[in-house]
Write a protein that binds this DNA or RNA. Structure first.
Lengths: 130, 130
DNA sequence: GCTTGACTTGGAGTATACTCCAAGTAATAT
DNA sequence: ATATTACTTGGAGTATACTCCAAGTCAAGC
């Protein structure tokens, strides 16, 4: 699979794919005799992982570290486990922040829906009226 | 309330507080006769909102826009409602991405927990073994 | 054989969101 | 009164994550 095909399959730019490879966020992709990237199935797994984790906000550094550990073989199982657990923690925290913000937005939206109908914006007592 | 007190109350740097004010992400804070920021209760509401929304990843631009609309008065209720709804949508999407990534991490973690015990990393059939 | 289009590399540029700094003013403690 | 500390401003610098570009190589169709 060429970089173009991968780029279209996952809706990610070729530049970004090359960038991910260059910095070690995905392992080096095998090449044709002419030196052109030829993505294998297992490479696609890495690409999927990278996209999934990045879209959740996981830092690139963590993914680079994970790839490095992976390439060092079975001796790094424990280190990889720890890395994954740390990142899960961080995503769970992020999710909590997100939910707090969504709740706040929902409350505000409910007030503004009334305000648009009545022309008056009202708040509950402890609210700071913003 | 001085900027130092606000900074300590919300665990945010004074630089960031001034930055938020300068770019219009929170309204201008009233000053003492000497020109020093003197945060009122309502200002704290804005600070809280800014911190909450930023920590959820809401872009600064959206918050600046919201403050602008707010300052234009009651005529912007509908515009503010729309802005809030759009941002909620975007946070809901972000939450979905986050959950996908957390699920993936949980699956990997479960495999690695076994791997650390047994010395062998195993995957289900459709997995790309990463 | 040559043109077209896709590929390569390394490096520079951009966007977002802070974060730091210098130079100066103001308030507080002794 | 003076030293220390906190505050002010505007502008420059940093971190992260891309994103674009230039110059060159390679492969397929005509």
């Amino acid at each position: 699979m060429t970089i173009k095909e991968v780029s279209e399959k996952y809706n990610i730019s070729q530049d970004t794919l090359r960038y991910y490879e260059r910095i070690g966020m995905i392992p080096e992709i095998s090449r044709t005799p002419g030196g052109i990237r030829n993505y294998q199935e297992s490479d696609l797994g890495w690409v999927e992982l990278a996209i999934c984790m990045r879209s959740a906000g996981l830092p690139i550094e963590a993914l680079i570290e994970y790839v490095k550990l992976y390439q060092q073989g079975d001796a790094t199982f424990a280190a990889r486990l720890q890395l994954l657990q740390e990142q899960r923690e961080s995503l769970e925290e992020q999710k909590a922040q997100l939910e707090k913000a969504i709740n706040k937005l929902n409350y505000k939206i409910s007030r503004y829906e009334i305000a648009v109908k009545t022309g008056k914006l009202t708040w509950e007592d402890d609210d700071k009226c913003i």
